[in-house]
């Protein structure tokens, strides 16, 4: 369960959040909506633990009842998966090398599982091609393959649909649907209408 209490954060002398509260539990899809510059990405970075210059509390608890079940920061990084604007795909590495590296940082998997994930993202043929030969959409798919390899409870996705074709968008919809059916939480921002997803809770900034 993710809980944000009295979050205040300012950027460049502008107050982005003032006493912002959000609670989400298993099975929630939260869409953060707001105009450009309203602080969507900043909020997601704070959730992920990347930006720490805020006041208030952001906590993840294993169960809603026990206040003591809050997890440690390192444990939280294993439970959460953050995907930013940039895909974190190195152009001089192959998709498989990139995926193995990215999973190694949180929860290592063996190569066969990584290959299966790439195949599911329809990157089967370009496993051994350097990523600078791939299109922006294919690079995004490499980044999204992490969703299939890492067993994270909380997905934090910043504009995950960028550069994806319609088949890719459908695939990501399925992945998100699957994740929340398994009791996970998905927090995302997007400028596309999320018509393919059921049960999206919208939070307006």
């Amino acid at each position: 369960m993710l809980e944000i209490r009295e979050l205040c954060c300012e950027r460049g002398e502008r107050l982005l959040f003032d006493q912002f509260n959000l609670v989400c539990g298993p099975g929630d899809i939260i869409e953060i909506r707001g105009a450009n510059g309203s602080g969507k990405s900043t909020l997601l970075r704070i959730l992920a633990g990347l930006a720490q210059d805020y006041s208030g509390t952001v906590s993840w608890r294993e169960s809603a009842k026990q206040a003591s079940s809050e997890v440690s920061p390192i444990e939280f990084r294993r439970l959460s998966l953050y995907l930013g604007h940039a895909s974190a795909v190195n152009a001089s590495l192959t998709p498989l090398e990139n995926l193995m590296w990215l999973t190694e940082l949180t929860t290592p998997v063996d190569e066969s599982r990584a290959i299966a994930a790439l195949q599911q993202m329809q990157l089967g043929e370009c496993e051994d091609v350097f990523c600078h030969h791939l299109s922006a959409g294919q690079q995004r798919r490499v980044a999204l393959a992490r969703l299939l390899t890492v067993d994270a409870r909380l997905w934090i996705l910043d504009e995950p649909f960028t550069a994806l074709d319609s088949a890719g968008v459908d695939l990501l919809h399925q992945l998100i649907q699957h994740q929340v059916r398994d009791g996970g939480v998905v927090v995302l921002t997007t400028h596309l209408p999320l018509t393919g997803l059921a049960g999206v809770k919208v939070v307006q900034l």
Binding site: Y82, N90, A91, L102
Partner: peptide
Amino acid sequence: DGSLEQLLLAA
């Protein structure tokens, strides 16, 4: 390319 964000979020 965003790899640095992921490095900082490593467990």
